[in-house]
Every structure is written in C-alpha cells, then in structure tokens.
C-alpha cells in the first residue's frame, strides 16, 4: 500500500515542479515568475519528500528529509522576498 501512495505523492510533487517551471518561463513579469517558482517548488519538494519518507525505513532518514524541506522552504521564502524587494523601484525610499 505504501508503494502506490509514495508514487502518487512523488508524482504530484513532480507536477508542481513542472507547473512552477512553466510559470517561470511563461509569466509576464518578475513578481509573477517569482510567485510561480517559490510557491510551486516548495510544495513540490514537500510532496516529493513526503513520498520518499514513506519508503524510508528509518526515523532518522525521515527527520533528515523533514529538515531538508524546512531549510529549503526557509531559503526559498527569504530569497524570493529579497529578489522581489531588490527589483522594486525605489525613488521614495528614505536614505539611512
């Protein structure tokens, strides 16, 4: 039972990666592209990690997968925000 379920989760994750990549290539401006990339990929990685975790026989491996997902989520969220902020036009930003 775990086999097909894992395959379904990984498959769903791959679909989200695919959707994120299509969005990155097709969306009109930087903010829309960032939206597609960071959100879809984060969910895709979570689904793939969940699918692989079902196949892992060891709790430690599952913990590592979870940690990888959390770190990737943190990095994607931060990098996405920083890129979006750097791209924002800033004529009125107060000088430090």
């Amino acid at each position: 039972m775990t086999g097909p379920l894992a395959a379904a989760l990984v498959g769903a994750g791959v679909l989200f990666f695919l959707a994120g990549t299509v969005g990155l290539l097709r969306f009109p401006d930087l903010h829309a592209r960032l939206h597609a990339l960071t959100k879809a990929d984060t969910l895709g990685l979570g689904l793939v990690a969940a699918g692989v975790a079902l196949l892992a026989g060891d709790v430690l491996v599952v913990a590592r997968l979870l940690l990888i997902w959390l770190l990737a989520m943190l990095a994607a969220a931060t990098a996405g925000q920083l890129i979006a902020r750097a791209a924002r036009p800033r004529p009125r930003e107060p000088r430090p």
Partner: peptide, 19 residues
C-alpha cells in the same frame, strides 16, 4: 549591504548560522 534592523535579511542572518 543596506540592512534594515529586524528586517528579512537580518532575521535570516540570525536564523541560519546556528544550523
């Protein structure tokens, strides 16, 4: 860099280094 105190980069720079 221009970093806002308690901003995004500042928080990230505090969160990730221990890990």
């Amino acid at each position: 860099q221009r970093v806002r105190p308690a901003g995004l980069l500042s928080t990230f720079g505090r969160l990730l280094p221990p890990v």
